[in-house]
């Protein structure tokens, strides 16, 4: 696999998933195993991607980490603590349609801070700072309906970052965007990450996106979802689209595609 193994990040991971199994039981059919023995870890300040075909259970995995769903067996810990339910320590961004359309961009970003009872002045400062980071300072008083799809996802990311989560969970965040916007948003995410050093777990079906954004890529097989490979990406944190032409990038892409085909 990749030549770089970062021992420091494995020493103190933010998120640990250990032997996670998710089964769906029904009275008529035998239990369906959606996720089977998933092990993974995300270190502080890392972007880790999970790539898999649709229906492999990768979104379920993310929902379990978010606390929106529960594992059948196995251990999921954030900073050593088990997960009982959703909380502001695990921010989540999904494909779309999650912004509050009646709230302005500013009020959307402020939502998590309102829930945390942050006083209004501190709240306003934090919102302005975040809108600056995502480059939407000039759109603070617009409604989501007036923004493009890419801008809306930037608002969603700013909103998820506002309560300063331990980890940001991204579930196909750019899946509903057109190809050009998608590319721009991937670079945008790297910029945001460079400024915030947020810990990010990204779920995607796009192999290029998984490699381009991730320091490490977990390849998930389908039915049941298993970790088919854990791949360290051999590029530094300062990436640009040049790396997508790097032969190592192309090799990785072929490798992951073969894995997905073999385990699809």
């Amino acid at each position: 696999m990749g030549p770089l193994v970062n021992a420091a990040t494995i020493a103190e991971p933010k998120l640990v998933v250990d032997g996670l199994v998710k089964e769906y039981t029904s009275r008529r059919a035998p239990a369906v195993r959606a996720l089977d023995g998933i092990d993974l870890s995300v270190g502080d300040g890392e972007i880790v991607s999970i790539v898999g075909a649709s229906g492999c259970g990768k979104s379920t995995l993310l929902r379990i980490v978010a606390g929106l769903d529960h594992a059948t067996t196995g251990r999921v810990e954030i900073e050593g603590c088990p997960i009982a339910g959703p909380g502001p320590d695990r921010g989540m961004v999904s494909q779309g349609y999650s912004l509050f359309p009646w709230r302005t961009v500013r009020a959307n970003v402020a939502f998590g801070l309102e829930c945390a009872k942050v006083p209004s002045r501190a709240r306003a400062e934090r919102v302005d700072e975040l809108l600056g980071i995502v480059g939407l300072g000039g759109f603070a008083d617009r409604l989501p309906g007036e923004l493009s799809g890419g801008m809306r996802q930037r608002v969603a990311i700013a909103r998820a970052l506002a309560p300063e989560p331990d980890i940001l969970l991204l579930d196909e965040p750019f899946g509903a965007l057109d190809a050009q916007t998608r590319r721009a948003m991937q670079d945008f995410l790297l910029q945001v990450w460079a400024r915030t050093r947020a810990t990010i777990l990204l779920v995607t079906h796009d192999i290029d996106e998984a490699i381009y954004l991730g320091r490490r890529v977990y390849v998930l097989s389908s039915r049941p979802g298993r970790v088919a490979a854990r791949i360290d990406v051999p590029f530094g944190s300062n990436r640009s689209w040049q790396v997508t032409r790097d032969p190592r990038f192309l090799d990785l892409r072929d490798e992951i595609r073969d894995l997905l085909l073999a385990n699809g």
């Binding site: 929106l68 502001p88 509050f100 829930c115 945390a116 909103r159």
Partner: peptide, 20 residues
């Protein structure tokens, strides 16, 4: 998605009902 977003932003049940 809107409800789960509110939950992951730290809103409780009552807040989700009232604010979402």
């Amino acid at each position: 998605d809107m409800v789960t977003s509110a939950y992951t932003l730290g809103a409780g049940r009552w807040t989700v009902l009232r604010r979402v």
